[in-house]
Simulated scan of single mutants.
Amino acid sequence: MNLNRRRFGCALCGAALFALAGCGRQEAAGASGPAEIAQGTACELDGMLLADYPGPKGQILFADAREPAFFCDTVELVSTLLRPEQVRPVKGAWVQDMGRADWAQPRGHWIDAKAAFYVRGSKKHGSMGPTLGTFAQRADADRFAVEHGGKVHAFAEITPEMVDLTGGALHDSRM
Rank of each mutant, 00 (worst) to 15 (best):
Asn2Ser: 13
Asn2Asp: 11
Leu3Gly: 07
Arg5Asn: 07
Arg6Asp: 02
Arg7Gly: 02
Phe8Ser: 05
Gly9Met: 06
Ala11Asp: 02
Cys13Val: 14
Cys13Asp: 04
Phe18Ser: 15
Leu20Pro: 01
Gly24Asn: 09
Arg25Glu: 15
Gln26Met: 10
Pro34Cys: 10
Pro34Arg: 05
Ala35Val: 12
Glu36Cys: 01
Glu36Asn: 15
Ala38Thr: 15
Gln39Glu: 15
Gly40Ile: 09
Ala42Asp: 04
Glu44Arg: 10
Asp52Gly: 13
Pro56Asp: 10
Lys57Cys: 01
Gln59Arg: 05
Ile60Cys: 00
Arg66Ser: 15
Arg66Val: 14
Thr74Gln: 00
Val75Gly: 07
Val78Gly: 00
Thr80Ala: 02
Leu81His: 00
Leu82Ser: 08
Leu82Lys: 04
Val90Ser: 07
Gln96Asn: 11
Met98Lys: 08
Gly99Ala: 13
Arg100Pro: 07
Asp102Ala: 12
Asp102Tyr: 01
Trp103Ile: 09
Gln105Leu: 14
Gly108Ala: 07
Gly108Ser: 08
His109Trp: 07
Asp112Thr: 08
Asp112His: 04
Ala115Tyr: 08
Tyr118Thr: 03
Ser122Met: 10
His125Met: 14
His125Ser: 14
Gly126Ala: 04
Gly126Ile: 04
Gly129Ala: 11
Gly129Lys: 08
Pro130Leu: 10
Pro130Val: 03
Pro130Tyr: 08
Gly133Val: 02
Thr134Gln: 03
Gln137Lys: 12
Gln137Glu: 13
Asp140Val: 06
Ala141Trp: 08
Phe144Cys: 09
Ala145Gly: 12
Gly150Met: 09
Lys151His: 12
Val152Ile: 08
Phe155His: 02
Phe155Thr: 00
Ala156Val: 03
Ile158Val: 11
Thr159Gly: 01
Pro160Phe: 09
Met162Asn: 03
Val163Ile: 04
Asp164Gln: 01
Asp164Trp: 01
Asp172Tyr: 02
Asp172Gly: 02
Ser173Ile: 15
Arg174Lys: 14
Met175His: 12
